[in-house]
Amino acid sequence: MSYVPDNFKYVESHEWIEVLDNGNVRIGVTEHAQSSLGDIVFVELPEEDSYATGDECGVVESVKTASDIFAPLTGTVVAVNDALEDAPELINENPYDDGWIFEMTVDNADELKDLMTAEEYRNSIEDEE
């Protein structure tokens, strides 16, 4: 079973969401997602722009397939992980830490309640593993 940190939130598109101390969220893809994608070779990072929940905002290309990155909440992208430009494999190696993809503001804190807990996400991927 892939590692799923308890203190993060999750969405069905296999992204994790960490609520930061300043109220913004940091987003990446889960261990389960990186493992099914295989070696990641390019990342198209989101523009520093505003997005609504579910908007496509970037792409992760692995040797096997291209996978969209979606905004899990409505807000504005305020930071992206530039290190991924030269080292996209950070997502494979450390998806919850050095492999983070972007940070965004949260326009509506209520949306956080709609996200999956670690337990719910674990159950959702159980059948796939």
């Binding site: 070779v41 390019f42 198209e44 792409v59 290309e61 040797v63 397939t65 291209a66």
Partner: peptide, 8 residues
């Protein structure tokens, strides 16, 4: 392709 995408 020289852009950072993958041909499929």
């Amino acid at each position: 392709l020289t852009e950072r995408r993958i041909l499929r």
